[in-house]
Amino acid sequence: NLYFQGLKYMVPGARVTRGLDWKWRDQDGSPQGEGTVTGELHNGWIDVTWDAGGSNSYRMGAEGKFDLKLAP
Score class of each variant (00 low, 15 high):
28 D>F: 04
4 F>I: 12
17 T>H: 07
16 V>F: 03
60 M>R: 00
60 M>N: 03
25 R>S: 14
11 V>F: 09
52 A>K: 09
52 A>E: 08
61 G>P: 02
26 D>N: 11
42 H>V: 14
41 L>G: 05
51 D>F: 04
8 K>M: 12
2 L>H: 15
49 T>K: 12
41 L>H: 07
35 G>K: 00
53 G>L: 02
29 G>M: 05
12 P>C: 15
28 D>I: 05
45 W>A: 01
21 D>E: 04
29 G>Y: 05
63 E>H: 11
28 D>Q: 05
13 G>W: 05
3 Y>H: 15
57 S>D: 03
66 F>E: 02
54 G>H: 11
30 S>P: 09
66 F>H: 05
43 N>Q: 10
41 L>M: 10
38 T>K: 08
52 A>S: 12
30 S>H: 12
54 G>P: 06
46 I>M: 07
17 T>I: 15
67 D>L: 02
35 G>N: 02
43 N>F: 10
9 Y>H: 11
54 G>F: 10
5 Q>E: 15
1 N>I: 12
10 M>I: 10
26 D>Q: 09
39 G>C: 11
37 V>C: 08
66 F>R: 03
69 K>F: 12
8 K>Y: 09
72 P>L: 11
20 L>G: 10
12 P>E: 10
28 D>G: 06
30 S>N: 14
18 R>T: 04
43 N>D: 11
4 F>Y: 14
56 N>K: 07
62 A>V: 06
60 M>F: 09
59 R>C: 02
55 S>Q: 12
60 M>V: 08
56 N>I: 04
61 G>R: 03
11 V>P: 05
65 K>T: 03
68 L>W: 01
64 G>H: 07
66 F>M: 07
39 G>I: 05
58 Y>W: 02
39 G>H: 08
42 H>L: 12
37 V>Q: 02
67 D>Y: 02
30 S>F: 11
18 R>K: 05
61 G>T: 02
31 P>C: 13
27 Q>G: 07
35 G>F: 03
64 G>I: 05
27 Q>M: 06
51 D>S: 03
65 K>C: 15
51 D>M: 03
30 S>M: 12
21 D>Y: 05
19 G>M: 06
69 K>E: 12
41 L>T: 06
23 K>L: 07
37 V>T: 04
50 W>V: 00
12 P>V: 12
68 L>Q: 01
12 P>D: 08
45 W>V: 03
44 G>K: 01
47 D>H: 15
31 P>K: 07
6 G>D: 15
4 F>Q: 14
27 Q>V: 06
16 V>R: 00
66 F>L: 05
68 L>A: 02
25 R>N: 14
70 L>E: 04
19 G>F: 06
46 I>E: 00
62 A>D: 04
36 T>E: 06
71 A>C: 12
58 Y>R: 00
1 N>D: 14
12 P>T: 10
15 R>W: 05
49 T>L: 13
41 L>F: 09
36 T>K: 05
21 D>P: 03
53 G>P: 00
70 L>K: 05
50 W>Y: 01
31 P>I: 08
7 L>C: 15
69 K>Y: 13
44 G>S: 02
20 L>C: 15
1 N>Q: 12
56 N>Q: 08
68 L>C: 02
2 L>A: 15
2 L>Y: 12
3 Y>P: 14
27 Q>I: 05
61 G>Y: 03
47 D>E: 15
48 V>E: 00
12 P>I: 14
42 H>N: 12
18 R>F: 08
41 L>S: 07
33 G>A: 08
39 G>R: 10
29 G>C: 07
36 T>Q: 07
6 G>M: 15
23 K>W: 06
31 P>T: 08
61 G>E: 01
40 E>K: 13
13 G>L: 04
65 K>M: 09
53 G>N: 03
25 R>M: 15
60 M>Q: 02
19 G>V: 07
4 F>H: 13
53 G>Y: 04
68 L>N: 00
57 S>F: 09
48 V>F: 01
50 W>E: 00
33 G>T: 12
56 N>P: 02
47 D>S: 14
70 L>I: 10
28 D>T: 05
51 D>I: 03
22 W>F: 06
14 A>F: 04
13 G>Q: 04
64 G>N: 11
15 R>N: 01
13 G>D: 01
30 S>E: 11
68 L>I: 09
34 E>P: 14
4 F>C: 15
4 F>M: 12
25 R>H: 14
47 D>Q: 15
47 D>A: 14
51 D>H: 04
42 H>W: 10
10 M>V: 09
25 R>E: 14
30 S>R: 12
50 W>C: 00
54 G>M: 10
14 A>I: 09
6 G>Q: 15
20 L>R: 14
6 G>E: 15
68 L>S: 01
47 D>F: 14
70 L>R: 07
65 K>Y: 07
41 L>E: 06
13 G>H: 04
57 S>G: 07
21 D>W: 06
19 G>Y: 06
55 S>E: 09
52 A>Y: 12
22 W>L: 05
19 G>E: 03
29 G>R: 04
22 W>P: 03
37 V>I: 14
8 K>W: 10
14 A>Y: 04
38 T>M: 11
6 G>K: 11
41 L>W: 12
23 K>S: 10
56 N>Y: 15
55 S>W: 12
21 D>V: 05
21 D>C: 07
57 S>N: 09
43 N>P: 03
32 Q>T: 10
39 G>S: 14
64 G>L: 07
66 F>C: 10
25 R>L: 14
22 W>A: 04
9 Y>F: 12
51 D>K: 04
5 Q>H: 14
46 I>K: 01
19 G>I: 07
18 R>C: 06
13 G>Y: 06
42 H>E: 10
33 G>D: 07
54 G>V: 10
39 G>L: 04
11 V>A: 09
1 N>W: 09
13 G>V: 03
16 V>H: 01
8 K>V: 11
14 A>W: 03
38 T>C: 13
59 R>G: 02
29 G>Q: 06
10 M>Y: 13
29 G>H: 05
38 T>P: 00
56 N>M: 07
24 W>Q: 04
70 L>N: 04
14 A>L: 07
22 W>S: 04
4 F>S: 11
65 K>V: 04
67 D>A: 02
29 G>S: 06
9 Y>D: 10
33 G>K: 07
1 N>P: 13
63 E>C: 15
20 L>T: 13
20 L>N: 13
16 V>A: 01
4 F>K: 11
2 L>M: 14
54 G>A: 08
11 V>Q: 09
6 G>N: 13
53 G>F: 03
48 V>C: 02
30 S>W: 11
64 G>R: 07
6 G>F: 15
66 F>W: 12
3 Y>E: 15
26 D>H: 08
19 G>N: 08
22 W>R: 03
65 K>H: 06
17 T>L: 13
30 S>A: 11
52 A>L: 08
47 D>P: 13
30 S>D: 14
26 D>C: 13
17 T>D: 01
7 L>I: 12
45 W>S: 00
67 D>N: 00
49 T>C: 15
57 S>L: 10
65 K>Q: 07
30 S>K: 13
56 N>E: 07
18 R>W: 06
48 V>K: 00
72 P>R: 13
35 G>I: 02
71 A>P: 04
32 Q>N: 14
34 E>T: 13
31 P>D: 08
25 R>V: 11
55 S>H: 11
35 G>H: 00
24 W>T: 05
3 Y>V: 14
2 L>F: 11
30 S>G: 15
40 E>D: 10
1 N>A: 11
72 P>K: 13
59 R>D: 01
48 V>I: 06
2 L>Q: 15
16 V>Y: 02
42 H>Y: 13
32 Q>W: 11
33 G>W: 06
16 V>E: 01
44 G>R: 00
72 P>G: 13
49 T>R: 11
70 L>G: 04
42 H>R: 14
